[in-house]
């Protein structure tokens, strides 16, 4: 057993887990945070996406012990206009991939804001990269949606991005923290 401290959604959590316990199972089975979903348990679907210190990662391939002391944000800790945008644009059907899509989108927007390129970025040396539909699709391709709500997800992300640019907003990840 290992003693692990995590700061989850702004709250310090301490848990005793075997080293083999994934961050995903720690969240779902030990901490009751079932908003983060298990779709494949092997890094192939993105449903388990959470933010670790603001970066999107797959909690199924993360051992909880490896994330000692890290700041983890799950869907339960997200309070962002993007959630309303997902509802408005019907960016989901069954809702099972949705937590991962939303966390991934928040991480992706932060990556883009930091200037990170993608596989479809032409002109890697450019200082600014426009977040086109093609860019969003490529950057979100690690999040599968079998219901096929991709159009709505892209629309929700676009709207969120446009609002942020208009308001020069910074990403809000955890309720009460800005």
């Amino acid at each position: 057993m290992a003693d692990v401290h995590l700061r989850i959604n702004g709250v310090d959590r301490r848990l005793e887990v075997e080293p083999r316990v994934s961050l995903l199972d720690a969240l779902r089975e030990r901490l009751g945070l079932t908003g983060t979903k298990k779709g494949c348990d092997q890094g192939a679907c993105g449903a388990c996406t959470v933010l670790a210190d603001g970066e999107r990662v797959l909690s199924c391939l993360a051992l909880a012990v490896q994330y000692e002391g890290r700041e983890i944000t799950t869907i339960e800790g997200v309070a962002d206009p993007i959630q309303r945008a997902f509802v408005r644009h019907d960016g989901f059907q069954c809702g099972y991939c949705t937590s991962g899509q939303i966390c991934s989108a928040l991480g992706m927007l932060a990556e883009h804001a930091a200037g990170a390129p993608s596989a479809v970025t032409e002109g890697l040396a450019a200082a600014e990269i426009e977040l086109t539909e093609a860019e969003i699709r490529e950057r979100m391709s690690g999040n599968l949606c079998r219901c096929g709500a991709y159009n709505g997800i892209v629309a929700a992300i676009q709207e969120t991005q446009e609002t942020r640019v208009a308001e020069r907003d910074v990403p809000t990840l955890v309720e009460g923290r800005r």
């Binding site: 092997q42 699709r137 979100m140 391709s141 690690g142 999040n143 599968l144 096929g148 991709y150 892209v154």
Partner: peptide, 13 residues
């Protein structure tokens, strides 16, 4: 597995 059975991803749609 979902890595070897290819369902459409965002970029395919």
């Amino acid at each position: 597995s979902l890595s070897e059975y290819h369902v459409p991803v965002h970029a395919d749609v």
